[in-house]
Amino acid sequence: MEFLMLLITLVVLQAISPSHASIQAAPANSNLFREYIGAESNNVRFTDVPIRSDVEFHFILSFAIDHDTSNSPSSTNGKFNIFWDSDNLSPSQVSSIKNRHSNVKVALSLGGDSVENGYAYFNPSSVNSWVSNAVSSLTRVIKQYNLDGIDIDYEHFQADHDTFTECIGQLITTLKRNGVISFASIAPFANGQVQSHYLALWRKYGHQIDYVNFQFYAYDQDISVSQFLDYFETQTSNYNGGKVLVSFISDGSGGLSPSDGFFTACSKLKSQKQLHGIFVWSADDSKAEGFRYEKQSQALLAIHH
């Protein structure tokens, strides 16, 4: 009889204390808005971008790259240099925008598509040497610029999945443990090689990754709202338990554009409590448009999130 009571008690306790996984995957909207900035050197500044006070706002400086800054840059095995427009997006300007807006955080993104006239390859000599160099070079930049987080946007690889997983996983873990960053994101897109690297990283280090900046604009142009929602469902399943953010590209060159139903899709996701945030590539291109879709995105995110 006592054994039976114990069993019943255990069953009841299990029922009222949900597992960590179910808590993590619980649907919830967010008012997070993120925008890449600085990759195209067209003099865009933080102060150009409209910022609502009732959203969580992340600027993502693009890019820090582990290459030297010569005209024909070569890989530097984790020694990162600044390749964003540091004249207009300087340490003092980071401090200024954060002082002016308490809801703003600033991150930097690693890698990107290209450097000078070639691809920006992920090309470490070894896991240990790359991690050691990356931790020290990035800690220096992050502290100099008073940054809050990092984003991983490598798109071309000269290393296998395991090497990428350990290099990036150990980097994020170490920077968090050292109190250098408070959040990290990854920026994959639907390409076989890209996905295989990021999904390997996710399987082992997903618990260290706060946001998935999935590049939905890398899909074909002119997709429909229902196709977009299908893609979102697929990537939510791939990055299981993660906060997959939706995205558009300012110049409308891919994916579902704001003029073709992007906000309809966002509203649908919001009604299902699956709108974990919106990010934009990029402020550099939005400047010519007067940032109208940034305003619309933030207005949507701010409504009873």
Rank of each mutant, 00 (worst) to 15 (best):
L7G: 04
L7V: 05
I8L: 14
I8F: 13
V11G: 10
V11L: 14
V11W: 09
L13T: 13
L13A: 15
A15M: 15
S17Y: 15
S17V: 14
P18V: 04
P18I: 07
P18Q: 04
P18M: 05
S19Q: 15
S19M: 13
H20F: 14
A21H: 12
A21V: 11
Q24K: 15
Q24L: 14
A25V: 10
A25G: 08
A26V: 09
A26F: 14
P27N: 11
P27M: 06
N29P: 02
N29S: 07
S30C: 06
S30E: 11
L32N: 10
L32E: 08
F33R: 05
F33E: 08
F33Q: 08
F33A: 12
F33C: 08
R34C: 14
R34Q: 15
E35P: 01
I37A: 09
G38D: 07
G38P: 08
A39L: 12
S41T: 02
N42I: 09
N43A: 13
V44G: 09
V44C: 12
V44P: 13
R45P: 03
D48L: 10
D48S: 07
D48Y: 13
V49W: 08
R52G: 05
R52Y: 12
R52V: 05
S53I: 03
D54H: 13
V55T: 14
F57Q: 01
F57L: 02
F59T: 02
F59N: 01
I60V: 12
L61R: 02
S62F: 00
F63L: 04
F63E: 08
A64W: 12
I65V: 03
I65N: 00
I65K: 11
D66Y: 00
D66I: 00
H67I: 01
D68W: 11
D68A: 08
D68N: 15
S70F: 01
N71K: 04
N71G: 13
S72R: 06
S75A: 10
N77G: 03
G78E: 10
K79G: 01
F80P: 04
N81L: 05
I82C: 02
F83I: 01
W84A: 03
W84S: 04
D85G: 05
S86T: 11
S86C: 07
D87Y: 14
D87A: 10
N88E: 09
